[in-house]
Write a protein that binds this DNA or RNA. Structure first.
Lengths: 241, 241
DNA sequence: TGGCTGAAGATTGTGCACAAAAATACCAGA
DNA sequence: TCTGGTATTTTTGTGCACAATCTTCAGCCA
């Protein structure tokens, strides 16, 4: 019953862009769309009941964020960060989050950590309830909240992008079912920040991220998951570009 | 003589996208297109002799990077970072570059700083020759080279974006003709990195960026440069979105 | 003279259709 | 049965045209 006779006010398409972008992004980050999934333009357009233009826009944006890989004349796929890229991702996070934690130590010594505490508590609850999906999500949010506490939206945006791509890298290369961050390290971090211990806190976040990276299998074997030819073909095109 | 009778292999458009994006980006960063300049789609398309589609693609990308502001039904303008945004930009750079410098101190203690030295020398030469434009560009490159020395392309990309936006912020809010970074601070930084003095180097880069920020006029007065109504109108639309 | 209303012009946003490319299916021959 | 080539089908890329919106300017009234 949504078919109005009027020629449409043009609002729909603008909103559709955001909807496609937001929902697809969410689906990728929450692993509903596993790495390597092909995102056919028509299929996505049908799903959101919008034109292909909105889909193309959203896909381009997602590509810029490193969440989907765009292969010329082949289409869009949920990105599968290479082992090298995964390492760089973690390296970047160590550099950035080290700075964030140092910043937090200076301005949130005593209180102001409430959001972090609330997140860690929620994380504990989820883990206790056996809700692994929520726990994983919250463990990622913890880092985002830290970025938010700097009060700097630029920093927040940068880390958001990094965290998303890290999640993708973990999905792609996880060894067993390593369940994301270890909560007790989060608690330790909160404690160190509240005490304003710059160096210890910086070391803690560094070790924390290193542990996360160690949980992955970043050996140089060819590839995984999706079909061999898919990957080989993709590699060919990526090399040409 | 480039007009082939054949119906075009479709390569042109793909290349055009990159050309429009790259050249426009360059023009913005080098201040050939000052902040506030309107980028009419048709005008850009004519300049590059390409379709409007390529221009739209490039503009969207530039918008994601924060280099152009896109106002619905109004068009694209070279961004004029607000005072708040400028502060956040510098804050983010302090966090990120602090981490980069710490990283460099660990892995480039003795040598490996050659690219930095070469850049600083070139900067000195340009400044001595009175070539302010080149000097400014090189002073920005210095920071990018530091990022590159981490060997982490993710970090490099993040800083590149930050530096570009910072240049825009400086163009928009510069008080007098403050000539970018002070070279002697760059030399001091190199020295500290070579000696591997983490803390001193981190303090130096922090102070360096703080000095750069202090050179700006970030008072909360309404706006500047382009016509008042332009800005008011833009603010209206931005507020509505 | 100043402010308001309405039409004309200019510019952006979106859908659609067609062309190019790749993937797939199919078939003949060894 | 497997290989090689060919035709079909699916999917992406691009240009074009129209609609919506905003800006500008002229005319009109208080």
């Amino acid at each position: 019953m949504s078919e109005t006779g009027v020629p449409r006010r043009r609002a729909p398409a603008a909103a559709a862009k955001q909807a496609v972008y937001g929902c697809t992004r969410e689906a990728i980050v929450t692993r509903k769309l596993p790495p390597g999934t092909k995102l056919t333009e028509d299929a996505v357009a049908d799903a959101f009941e919008c034109g292909r233009g909105a889909v193309r826009w959203a896909l381009a944006r997602l590509h810029d964020e490193g969440l989907v890989s765009l292969i010329p004349n082949r289409g869009a796929f949920v990105a599968q960060p290479a082992a090298d890229e995964a390492k760089h991702l973690f390296g970047a996070r160590r550099i950035l989050e080290g700075g964030i934690v140092r910043c937090l130590c200076q301005f949130h010594r005593d209180d102001g950590c409430q959001p972090l505490i609330a997140c860690a508590e929620a994380e504990d609850r989820a883990r206790l309830a056996g809700d692994a999906a929520t726990a994983l999500r919250l463990s990622g949010d913890f880092h985002l909240i830290m970025a938010g506490l700097t009060g700097n939206p630029v920093v927040e945006t940068m880390l958001r992008e990094l965290v998303s791509r890290t999640i993708l890298a973990i999905s792609t290369h996880q060894r067993t079912d390593t369940s994301g961050c270890r909560t007790h390290e989060h608690w330790r971090l909160i404690d160190l920040i509240r005490r304003g211990d710059l160096e210890a806190a910086a070391r803690e976040i560094d070790a924390h991220l290193a542990a996360l990276e160690d949980g992955l299998d970043l050996s140089p074997r060819p590839a995984l998951s999706t079909g061999l030819r898919e990957i080989l073909s993709a590699a060919r095109h990526a090399g040409a570009a």
